[in-house]
Amino acid sequence: MLTSTDVHAAAERITGVVRATPVWTTTLDEVAAGLTFKLEMLQHTGTFKARGAANRILAAREQGLLDPNVGIAVASGGNAGLANAWAAARLGVPATVFVPQSAPAAKIRRLQAAGAQVVATGSEYAAAYTAASEHVARTGALHCHAYDQLEICAGAGTLASELLAQTDRQLDTVIVAVGGGGLMAGVAAALDQQDISVVGVEPSNAPTLHSALAAGEPVDVSVGGVAADSLGARRVGDIAFEVARRRQVTSVLVTDEAITHARRLLWERWRLVVEHGAATPLAALLAGAYRPDDGERVAVVLCGANTDPTDL
């Protein structure tokens, strides 16, 4: 079970490896609440996932589970792959990243530039995941999951620990995007002992958490839309589901149109560049999917910046 103790241990472990990202407090006429943005898109590799990757590898090294000659393996052509490749290079171990054959050449070049060996296999993520698992069984590489491992989730939750200190705990609600749920799980666990609510926001055409809560268990969903590159998991993780139910995380959905509007507003009003998935929490406020009370102190996590800025 993921708890605040795991997040605190992760925070100590990755201090000096990842960046402490800033916060910025502002107001929006469209939202009655006071807003604090956690600018996590300024993290190494452009997303929060660097935190979990660093924590996973360092924890494994402490426990004697990491062979420094074999290194790590991960299935992901997106943010998780890049974060794990970076963390492995930062900590001096090899990384093998398995991607679908459909992975864009630009992403493969970024992974290779980060020092990873890239293996393209199959037409979908599932095939890449199977190949990564077989590589782990064959070589003894450390498996780094994109979102459903305790150390990965705990590392992600360290941004909430930072946020608490940066705001002197003057918060009522933290709003985060949900794909596989690792970020939401880490944030909610970090706030275990706090009187602070967590709201998880998903695209309406990729409702992994929403569907799981309705069904009473994680279920497969179809995935599509503008945020599918970062919020494209087909099923919420088991860790995330347990934390969401235990912490009574509020789940809301937003449309692609709302996400696109929020992303563009962040650019036009404040020159903040984020990917569509990172704009999803703000979309919930702008579209009224989550309506804070007057005076509610709300933090919005802007979790990633790996995007094409030409369509802002």
Rank of each mutant, 00 (worst) to 15 (best):
T27N: 14
L28D: 12
R19Q: 09
I57W: 04
L82K: 03
N79D: 09
A53W: 10
A88G: 04
F48Y: 12
A83G: 01
I72A: 00
A85G: 04
A32W: 02
K38A: 11
G64L: 10
A60G: 08
H44N: 13
S76A: 00
T47C: 13
E30V: 04
A73D: 01
L82G: 04
G64V: 08
P68G: 03
L82I: 04
E12V: 13
R61E: 13
A89H: 11
T21C: 14
G64F: 07
L35G: 13
A20K: 15
A75V: 07
A59R: 13
V70P: 13
P22N: 10
F48C: 03
E40R: 02
V74N: 14
V31P: 07
A88S: 08
K38M: 13
P68E: 07
N69G: 12
V70L: 05
W24L: 15
T21Y: 15
T21L: 08
V23F: 09
A73T: 08
G64I: 06
V31M: 06
A50Y: 03
P22F: 05
W86K: 03
T27F: 06
K38C: 07
R56F: 09
K49W: 08
A85M: 03
T27K: 11
G78K: 01
W86Q: 00
L65R: 13
I14C: 02
N55W: 02
K38R: 15
A75T: 10
V17S: 11
P22Q: 12
P22D: 05
R51C: 12
R19W: 06
F48W: 05
L35F: 07
G64A: 11
A54S: 15
R19T: 06
S76I: 04
A59P: 01
A85C: 08
A11S: 10
R56G: 08
N79K: 00
K49G: 06
T26F: 04
A87T: 03
A83I: 05
G52Q: 10
L66I: 03
A20D: 14
Q63Y: 02
A33R: 08
P22E: 12
L82H: 12
G52V: 02
V17H: 15
T21E: 12
K38I: 07
A88C: 01
M41C: 14
K38P: 09
E12P: 00
L66C: 02
A89Q: 07
A73Q: 07
D67S: 03
A54I: 02
A59G: 02
M41F: 15
N69P: 03
T47Q: 01
A87H: 07
R13Q: 04
T45M: 11
V23D: 13
A59N: 04
V74G: 02
T21Q: 14
A60K: 07
W86S: 00
